[in-house]
Design a protein around this nucleic acid. Structure first.
Lengths: 355, 355
DNA sequence: CCATTAAATGACACCGGTTTCTCCCGGCTA
DNA sequence: TAGCCGGGAGAAACCGGTGTCATTTAATGG
């Protein structure tokens, strides 16, 4: 009895089970097992059941490397981003991973430097070496034209997350930055603000223009034009936010509200106000953009435009993996993400309305 | 002439070059090319040079999937973390990717839920399916005993990032939380603070105990014992920070300083102080822990203990990849990370020293 | 009942590498 | 000169799957 123990795992000592083991145990060829794994319709129900049973019993999991080798494609998705944005990446990531759960795909992260000489070749190497199943590009890489061209000839599907549609062919997750900033502008105007400072982003980002256009147009519609001295250009960084806010707050009459094109810069506004002993929101209303984790943690909590980052990541990933039920709102090409203003404690009517 | 053009890329039309192409072009067997790729010493210098030349010229890159299949191991590193900590993960990640650059390894991220039934099996599946070359565990997963046991039998090297040494065998990146909080405590005491509130973390984290012990011991050494009503237990979350701070600030006499065991909760202290119209730092000094991106963006900028997260990620990854020059400070087993207090604007001597 | 056809399955090569084993060759020893 | 040794290189099998195509089986028609 002792020698012939271990009835089940014949010859499978410690080794991971392979497709051959399953084939042998189910008395079929490995090809048929392969058919079952890949859900081929040409397998008799009875055979499929038998094979499935063996797979279950053994706890067999096909090797993604071997599968990928044969498929000439991996089961990896790439997430490509440029360093500076660091803050929200984890959320995109978690959203994407949400969509990937149970799909057999994994997410490989790949930061890069868009200004480097090696930017496009680097991304290209990454995609080709790993034979990625798909790639998600975050802004600002998602807006890069050179990369866009390189991708055309690379036989790799990808999704871009950006604030404007790039072309009609590729898949995108587009946010309606214009309408969102319009909403913020309308809100401020309705509160009674007339002297409003605007801190824009750096010109190389598409979102910069979108946000500014939406904001200004909405104000103009309500008969308000912001003088150019109240529009300053930031760099989407905290430090630039401080500097821009100081410039704005040095003017007389002082603006009663400042809209910053992202939360980082809005935090900079807080800092400047703190230094100048200007109270938020009593003497200055502040609105940001992103609803980054920090927004709700500032005191007072920042009124901002919510970017449903996680949801966007989820959508992007789900566009890249084969799935039976297409995501709701998935029109095949671009998916529009609706942004909205989240009113918190950093905004209120001006104490002494101008005009 | 027209027909026989394209002199170089014989038969290699659009296809990616393989080891066979290199072998053919260099007039050697594929095995010899493989030897060159893997830096085998048994290749004549002349042969190696010829092969290298062809590789360069063609721009050949070995396929990691095929290589992995033969090696029974992938060229992927896993980064396993539990969701809630989201904030600093990107930094660990970028640090790790720093170390991976050019190594041929890639990083696969894998969030998980430590409280789920499927936690250990899930991580196990991840590691085994992908045949990971190595894994990095972040706290609190890095402290999990069940996972630790499961890993023993899994033939996969891993590094744990944590605040205490777990055992002597496995590789770790350990931070000296005790000494760091001791430094903060000493600093506060030296400023003249006598009534100091302490917001601890949740008991299931090892770091919670470490930080508390270090803090309290240092104060005791200087003859100061914090009464139990000034020690409250938070959950490492913003909301818990608010609640704990409100509890502390409701006491009379009010504490003149509060140490929160992470920056999230410190931001909560800011919030509570803001609501109660208590000025930081004039009426209340606040110290946090982590030096998260938010710390410097709060107003006033938060005095906190800097966790060199990025550096820790870099170290962890470099411990997992084969490298000629071992990292400095790499003693093979655990690497100690030194933390230090970063004094910013949220701390100053109390306005009316107690005692 | 056999021919015809579609469904179901299997044999074998292949994906792009590595490992194992064998062979060849030149130099050294006996 | 035979015999041994070890560096250098190649042939063939293998890693664990999939593609192609042929073959078997079952279902249908005449």
């Amino acid at each position: 009895m002792t020698g012939s123990a271990q009835p089940r795992s014949e010859r499978l000592q410690g080794r991971r089970a392979t497709i051959n083991d399953i084939a042998r145990l189910a008395s079929v060829s490995k090809k048929t097992v392969s058919r079952v794994i890949n859900q081929s319709p040409f397998v008799k129900e009875e055979t499929r059941a038998r094979i499935d049973a063996v797979i279950q019993q053994i706890g067999y999991i096909p090797d993604p490397q071997a599968r990928g080798l044969a498929f000439r494609r991996s089961f990896l998705l790439g997430l490509v981003y440029d360093n500076p944005n660091a803050q929200y990446i984890v959320n995109i990531q978690d959203g994407a991973l949400d969509a990937l759960r149970g799909s057999g795909f994994e997410l490989v992260v790949h930061p890069c430097d868009r200004l480097s000489e090696d930017f496009v070749p680097g991304v290209r190497r990454f995609v080709e070496r790993q034979k990625l199943h798909g790639v998600i590009f975050l802004p600002p890489v998602s807006e890069d034209q050179a990369l866009s061209r390189a991708l055309q000839e690379m036989d790799c599907q990808y999704v871009r997350i950006a604030s404007v549609r790039m072309d009609n062919t590729s898949r995108m997750i587009v946010s309606n930055d214009r309408e969102a900033t319009a909403e913020a502008a309308t809100y401020l105007e309705a509160l009674g603000h007339r002297r409003i400072g605007f801190i824009a982003g750096p010109p190389q980002y598409r979102s910069t223009h979108e946000r500014q256009i939406g904001f200004m147009n909405a104000l103009e519609k309500r008969g308000l034009v912001i003088p150019s001295e109240l529009i300053v250009e930031g760099a989407y960084s905290f430090e630039s936010g401080v500097a821009c806010a100081e410039a704005l707050l040095a003017q007389r009459p002082r603006p009663t509200a400042i809209f910053a094109c992202n939360d980082e810069m809005a935090a900079g506004v807080y800092k400047a106000a703190y230094r100048l002993k200007i109270l938020i929101p009593e003497e200055l209303s502040v609105i940001g953009f992103d609803d980054s984790p920090m927004a709700a943690r500032l005191s007072p909590a920042l009124t901002t435009i919510r970017l449903p980052i996680r949801e966007m990541g989820r959508l992007a990933a789900s566009k890249l993996i084969p799935s039976n039920a297409p995501e709701e709102g998935d029109t095949g090409g671009a998916a529009r993400i609706m942004l909205h203003l989240v009113v918190r404690d950093s905004s209120q009517p001006p104490s002494s309305p101008a005009g």
